[in-house]
Design a protein around this nucleic acid. Structure first.
Lengths: 123, 123
DNA sequence: CTTATATATGCATGAATTCGAAGATATGAA
DNA sequence: TTCATATCTTCGAATTCATGCATATATAAG
């Protein structure tokens, strides 16, 4: 099945194109509607240059489309479903982050107990 | 909204962990059930070392789980929904690949017409 | 000329991937 | 037990590629 390999390769390049915090935020923003570079810049707190660079990359991968209106370049999602799909991944992350925090708290508690028990570190 | 940023960052690291052709294939394989390293190795045509390394990475990101049975290490998906989610992304890619092929064919046709028209390259 | 955006250049910093060799662990054979 | 073998992991090193980001310059519209 070479087609499986082909699809896996294509999927991996697309995921790499998406896998940047700024670009994920951009996709999330565009889910609500088209925006221009400046708007994205203030919304994300990122310089226009970087936004433009991210958008150029996303456009090269046909993940967003450009529509020029005067000097404003409005970008929108090339595929609506795509954004939905990405956002569907968020719950996994939320669970993950939540359990990370829980784990860290457990570790902190364990360390405290350990400290209080250990005559070497007790003062 | 710092939480948005946090989630975007976490999502990007998870996507990066997934974004490798071998690892995508592995996740697809594991969707059908747990498999050991050798099975994955022959199924994907990849050396056991590489498989093991990929699995270690996926495990570090808690995307797969390990269950040892004798000298066989069986891996399974940590989250079933995750695989479904990843596989949901495949249709986008399929459309993309299909349109790429269509584009290439159009380019090929255009080139042929160009060649046939161009006195310099006509023989 | 100002505003809005794009691109070019360059650099820093690594980071991902892979391989071969060697190490660990479990099983079975002698 | 001891030795060999199967399975898998990890280490060290080489390769290679890239990624993100900033500054500066270019284009284009108004």
């Amino acid at each position: 099945m070479p087609s499986r390999n082909l699809l896996a390769r294509e999927l991996s390049v697309m995921l790499k194109a998406i896998a940047h915090p700024d670009r994920i935020r951009i996709i999330e923003e565009l889910k609500l509607g088209a925006l221009d570079v400046s708007a994205l810049s203030v919304n994300l707190g990122v310089t226009p240059t970087r936004i433009s660079q991210h958008l150029a990359l996303l456009k090269a991968h046909r993940l967003v489309e450009e529509r020029r209106n005067g000097r404003h370049h409005h970008y929108s999602l090339a595929e609506r479903d795509l954004a939905e799909w990405i956002l569907d991944g968020v719950p996994f992350i939320e669970r993950r982050v939540a359990s990370d925090i829980a784990a860290q708290q457990m570790i902190a508690v364990a360390k405290k107990l350990w400290r209080d028990d250990d005559p070497k570190t007790a003062n």
